[in-house]
């Protein structure tokens, strides 16, 4: 099953998520938009971190996960913050 959402982040950039899920967990996530990320290849790490996430995960916990991945891997995202992406994932799933 697929789910998607798209939002212009206030004061930031366009952010889209496209999710594939099996009814229980996210199987594949694609994050797109006109944001910036350094290094650019790190988008794969962020997307991979979202795979396996239970669909019931609260926005706050998704945000903590994204934040941890960004910090641990030294990834800088410009144009959105972790709660923005987490909120958009929740929006797509609901």
């Amino acid at each position: 099953m697929e789910a998607s959402a798209r939002r212009k982040i206030a004061g930031g950039k366009m952010l889209s998520v496209r999710l594939e899920h099996d009814g229980a967990v996210i199987v594949r996530a694609e994050v797109s938009g006109d944001f910036f990320m350094h290094p650019e290849e790190a988008i794969d790490i962020v997307e991979e971190a979202l795979a396996g996430l239970p669909l019931s995960t609260a926005s706050k916990d998704i945000s903590i996960l994204i934040d941890r991945v960004l910090k641990e891997r030294g990834i800088v995202a410009i144009g959105f913050e972790s709660p923005d992406l987490a909120g958009l994932i929740r929006e797509a799933l609901e």
Binding site: S16, V31, S32, G33, D34, F35, M37, E40, I43
Partner: peptide
């Protein structure tokens, strides 16, 4: 197009 954009969008 930007590195993270979908062409079709």
């Amino acid at each position: 197009i930007g590195r993270f954009q979908r062409v079709q969008d």
